[in-house]
């Protein structure tokens, strides 16, 4: 009897917390789809409207922002996959003097993250003349310690016999990496890819520092300017703009939520 009561209470608490957690998003959806007079006045029969989305869409170049975000995240992911695969393999399977030290240098980046080195990295990029370019936003993130670590762990789990067999058949080192290791590490690539994309899609501070024109700003930076109190946009429109900005990633997440959650778990376990 008490057992069933506890269970009912636990379920109620879990649901209550879940509701609380999803409420801000539901609320933004409510505000964006109803007239301004309903922003704080909840009436289930309030008429729906799409006008705020139209206004928001006209006030900021969301298409440009989205394309920029897409280019930046794509560039970062491509760089990361290439660099981390090569480095992860060398650290996992190739004995050479100094390997421990190199690995320690890599791991250091897990704590000394590029996010806090904005001052010096800005200086570097200005020297390379890469300010206000997608490549400039992407460069500091391409050699990701997390990616190298994750792939090294995965590659270490691949049976050495597979490599030896392939080598006996005359496969080169890069050939082995490409034909044996990469296919076997597919789940890790997927997990890392999703984590990386969602991280960089949402990243703000560094893109803010590096970009300074409408042509190169990603979504987050555009959204911050769009929603700034100084720009005098009214509330439902900000909500609509925010929803426009988060919709691509959110839609992807809702469609493949199981995959996303498992990927984050997979990446977190290592």
């Amino acid at each position: 009897m008490t057992n069933r009561l506890t269970r009912a209470l636990t379920t109620a608490a879990a649901w209550w917390l879940g509701l609380l957690w999803i409420m801000p998003l539901i609320y933004a959806l409510w505000a964006a789809t109803h007239g301004a007079q309903f922003t704080t006045h909840f009436d289930p029969f309030a008429p729906l409207t799409g006008e705020h989305f139209v206004t928001a869409w006209q006030q900021a170049p969301f298409v440009t922002y989205m394309l920029n975000t897409l280019i930046i995240t794509g560039l970062i992911l491509a760089g990361q996959l290439l660099l981390c695969t090569l480095a992860g393999y060398a650290l996992a399977r190739m004995p050479f003097p100094g390997r421990g030290m190199v690995f320690a240098l890599v791991l250091l980046q897990l704590m000394v993250v590029p996010e806090i080195l904005i001052v010096e990295n800005y200086r570097t990029l200005a020297g390379l003349d890469l300010i206000d370019t997608p490549l400039g936003v992407g460069l500091p993130y391409m050699a990701s310690a997390f990616g190298i670590f994750l792939l090294r762990q995965t590659f270490k789990g691949v049976p050495q016999e597979l490599e030896d067999a392939a080598r006996l058949e005359g496969c080169s080192r890069l050939g082995v990496l490409w034909k044996v290791y990469v296919p076997l590490a597919k789940p890790t690539y997927l997990a890392y890819g999703l984590v990386s994309v969602s991280h960089h899609w949402n990243n703000f501070l560094w893109p803010l520092v590096v970009t300074n024109t409408e042509q190169s700003r990603p979504l987050t930076v555009g959204l911050a300017i769009f929603g700034a109190p100084e720009s005098g946009v009214d509330w439902p429109v900000i909500c609509a703009g925010t929803l426009i900005a988060i919709s691509p990633l959110l839609a992807l997440f809702l469609l493949f939520q199981r995959r996303f959650v498992h990927s984050f778990m997979h990446a977190g376990l290592k």
Partner: peptide
């Protein structure tokens, strides 16, 4: 699980826009 995890997928800027209100 979906409800708990969703805030993670949102950019901090978007979250702040909503919470500002």
């Amino acid at each position: 699980r979906l409800a708990y995890f969703t805030p993670t997928m949102l950019p901090m800027i978007a979250v702040a826009n909503i919470w500002l209100f």
